[in-house]
Simulated scan of single mutants.
Amino acid sequence: MTTSSRYFVWNENTLCYQAEGDSRLGVLHGSVIRGGRNWRDGCFTPTAGDVLRDATLEDFREYRCQPPRGLFSDGGDVA
């Protein structure tokens, strides 16, 4: 997972990444309460019915994940 990866929120319940050149999504963190995916289940391929949007710094805060350095212009510290 580098800054060449892309970061998404899947179906408003899972923070995901997509490595460059890969069609699958990896799970950084999922909300169990909202039906999110578990990172232990590995990568998955989104379907046509899934809703993906670009992840924001606020998403990384909500899912308690540290974004890669340089992903956001303000440095990306979640603390």
Rank of each mutant, 00 (worst) to 15 (best):
C43A: 10
T14W: 02
Y17I: 13
N13Q: 14
I33C: 11
Y63V: 05
I33D: 11
L25Y: 04
S31L: 14
G36L: 04
R40T: 13
R40C: 12
S4N: 14
S23A: 10
I33N: 12
L25R: 01
F8I: 00
G30C: 02
R24I: 02
W10N: 00
A79Q: 09
D50T: 06
I33A: 13
C16W: 02
C43F: 09
D41A: 11
R69F: 10
E58D: 13
N13Y: 04
D77S: 14
G36C: 00
G42Y: 05
D74K: 03
A79P: 15
T14F: 04
V9S: 08
L15V: 00
P68T: 10
D77Y: 10
M1I: 15
T56Q: 01
W39K: 15
R61E: 10
G75K: 07
P68E: 04
D54L: 14
V9T: 01
R61A: 06
Q18Y: 05
T56W: 02
L15I: 02
P67Y: 03
E58T: 04
Y17M: 06
S23K: 04
Q66E: 11
D50F: 07
S31Y: 10
R40H: 15
L71W: 04
E20S: 13
M1S: 14
E58Q: 14
R69Q: 15
L15F: 06
Y63G: 01
C16Y: 00
R40A: 12
R6W: 09
G36P: 05
D41I: 05
P46A: 05
L28N: 03
A79L: 13
E62S: 11
D22I: 08
S31H: 11
G49F: 01
T45K: 13
R69A: 14
W10S: 05
L71E: 06
T3Y: 06
G30R: 03
V27A: 04
D41H: 14
H29K: 14
G70V: 01
P68Y: 02
R6S: 15
W10G: 04
F8Q: 05
V32A: 14
G49P: 03
Y7K: 05
F72R: 05
D59W: 07
L15N: 02
C16H: 02
R61L: 10
H29I: 08
L52R: 07
A79E: 14
V78N: 09
W39C: 13
C65Q: 15
L28W: 04
Q66N: 10
L52Q: 00
D50V: 09
D77C: 09
V9H: 05
G70W: 11
H29N: 15
V27D: 02
F8G: 07
F72K: 08
D22N: 08
N11V: 02
C65K: 09
F8W: 15
L25Q: 03
G21Y: 01
D50R: 11
T47R: 13
S31P: 05
G35I: 05
G76D: 13
T56P: 01
D59V: 00
S5T: 09
